[in-house]
Design a protein around this nucleic acid. Sequence first.
DNA 1: GATAAACTACACCGTATAGTTTACTTTTGG
DNA 2: CCAAAAGTAAACTATACGGTGTAGTTTATC
Lengths: 197, 197
Amino acid sequence: MKLSEQKRLQIVTAAEALFSEHGVAATSMDQIAARAEVSKRTVYNHFATKADLFAAMLEAMFAKVDQGEILAYAPGESIHAQLTAIAQQEIGLLTSPAFLKVARVAFLQMLTDASLAKMINKSSMGCLRYFSVFLQAAVDDGVLAIDDLELASKQFVFQLKSLVFYPLLYGLSDSVSNTDYLVEESVKLFLARYAIR
Amino acid sequence: MKLSEQKRLQIVTAAEALFSEHGVAATSMDQIAARAEVSKRTVYNHFATKADLFAAMLEAMFAKVDQGEILAYAPGESIHAQLTAIAQQEIGLLTSPAFLKVARVAFLQMLTDASLAKMINKSSMGCLRYFSVFLQAAVDDGVLAIDDLELASKQFVFQLKSLVFYPLLYGLSDSVSNTDYLVEESVKLFLARYAIR
DNA sequence: GATAAACTACACCGTATAGTTTACTTTTGG
DNA sequence: CCAAAAGTAAACTATACGGTGTAGTTTATC
């Protein structure tokens, strides 16, 4: 079963490219078959409907995204340095071509399909997977003072998303050059509010 | 020429509803005509193409959005109170049904049309129209210390957008109940970083 | 009350799309 | 080596969409 898997991969890869470029609705199954260099019937042998192909493609794209390792709080080390490291790792995720591609196709679909939006929102990605645990450890260590952990997490991550991710997502900027500055300022903002001096 | 204007209004209104619900691509001209209770030919008598109708509808929706008045810096009055007022006014805009509707259709189109994204990004709305002027006045008054006015503006507004607007836009929450709390925390975060004590 | 403008219903055109069918060839595996 | 599985090209179905043409009716205006 080697050829079959190969063809399936070609189809999913073609769907990734076309869906992320033009959106799901604007991409026809004929286009996908052509791009995959596969007969249209083969596409339908692997995926019964366009929606099935979309789901399979979304799964494949998510699998490709490197979420980065989970960073644990290190007592004694500078909180500024640790937050900076987390922010930089998050920026790496948010600006990676793989993440941007999946985000573009997912966001497009989310605006017309609320159930997809809720599903994706539940599966937290990047540093949100572990950030509230990190913050709790810092609080326990007496380095930070935070009442609302969930809010503080959002305040930190949303900074990065707004300044870096959304402009890229909507093609407002082709690349973000001053990420070091933005990371530094985001950490400063966060620590000004929550650090114990 | 009263009837003609009436029909045109019905068409644009129907387009607003359908475009914001299902997106432009997923809405047919027949559906719009039916919803407007107008013959399809009348639609085309008013708007030569679907793109023309889209443009007219976008303009009409923008006109409906109440951007709120421009708030000037008031020396002597509490900066905390003033920022809170601005934030609350902004929340009013971001949660208004008119703004959400236009945002939903615009965002959807922005993801497939980068030129539209750039155009809309240029026309700053809400408090971004005057916020950097406000901040500069506060700096001159010796109340705030800000190096990068543009960044500070974004940091303030993006808080509100991320916490309130995006969840509504993507239908993650039907309504936001604790806006007072979110405003208070956003102002706290901002002042912790930039207030002169 | 006549005239021009605007609206209506409806058929129509060309194109595109999701998905199917068919008739035939290639790959795979026991 | 042969049968089953999976591939191919291409025609086909049914439907939908953007947009047009037409013939007749309603509405406003003089």
